[in-house]
């Protein structure tokens, strides 16, 4: 079973996206052999009241069991506690995604700690995109730095019972999240879409530490082409069981998704 932990629906503020409706995304998944996807709404990245995007997302995925909804909330915005309750209890959201630098706060701010605690109390993993868009491609309106791995690691250490998912990351191997000379943080899962299989060999290094049960398949669709990460999985020199774990086993455990 292949589960994409890093997918989106809806419009994005900075450029046109294809395959961003449920029907088109499902068709793309069928073409590429992806069984299920954790999806958030792309408009939530830039909307001030991003919970409105959660409501739209919930409507869109109502009849699509293969699309698992993921909330996006801004803990620096009014009413996030009530919105989180709605997402967890009424809208069936299975994870919470945060965009600190797009939403005007830092990973070290008290509001971030508060929403991580609240998500953990509700059983939701916290998804942290290291970036939404390559910083070289941002237009004149935005200058949004990536989330530093060290800041994510510090947050994860402050919340040892929380579960964190790092997506769109690079430079994780050897960072505070997965040190070269020590054990990787036990409460962090890492999505591999941007990481090198060859030359820099980041994926093989992460296969050693933290290991396949902490690695996740994700594509970034429909922002990104799917084939590059499919190639990485196909060409990865690893036992088939480890590859199955990355493709979907780790995500199934994390999200509580039933086989098939």
């Amino acid at each position: 079973m292949t589960i994409d932990i890093n997918a989106y629906l809806g419009a994005f503020a900075l450029r046109d996206l294809r395959c961003n409706t449920p029907e088109a995304l499902i068709a793309l998944m069928d073409r590429k052999g992806i069984d299920a996807a954790l999806v958030s709404h792309a408009s939530a990245i830039t909307w001030k009241d991003c919970h409105r995007a959660n409501e739209l997302l919930a409507d869109e995925v109502t009849n699509e069991s293969r699309l698992i909804p993921c909330a996006v909330l801004n803990p620096a915005y009014a009413g996030w506690e009530r919105d989180l309750n709605t997402c967890a209890h009424d809208l069936g959201m299975k994870a919470l995604k945060l965009y600190p630098h797009w939403h005007g706060y830092a990973l070290g701010d008290p509001c971030c700690d508060a929403i991580v605690r609240a998500a953990t109390d509700r059983g939701l993993p916290v998804v942290l995109p290291m970036r939404a868009v390559d910083s070289r491609q941002l237009g004149w309106l935005f200058d949004v730095p990536d989330l530093p791995a060290a800041d994510i690691a510090a947050l994860a250490r402050r919340h040892p019972t929380a579960r964190f998912v790092v997506v769109n990351g690079i430079g994780v191997a050897g960072s505070a999240l997965a040190p070269s000379d020590g054990e990787a943080l036990g409460n962090c899962w890492i999505e591999i879409s941007r990481m090198s299989l060859f030359i820099g060999c980041e994926i093989p290094r992460l296969l050693d530490n933290p290991g396949p049960e902490r690695l996740l398949f994700g594509t970034g669709m429909p922002f990104k082409y799917v084939d590059p990460v499919l190639l990485k999985l196909e060409k990865l020199c690893a036992p088939e069981e480890a590859k199955r774990m990355i493709a979907g086993g780790s995500a199934r455990s994390l999200l509580g998704v039933a086989e098939g």
Partner: peptide
């Protein structure tokens, strides 16, 4: 490498 090949295949 995978990005380079994958985007053309896709």
């Amino acid at each position: 490498m995978c990005a380079g090949v994958g985007k053309i295949l896709a």
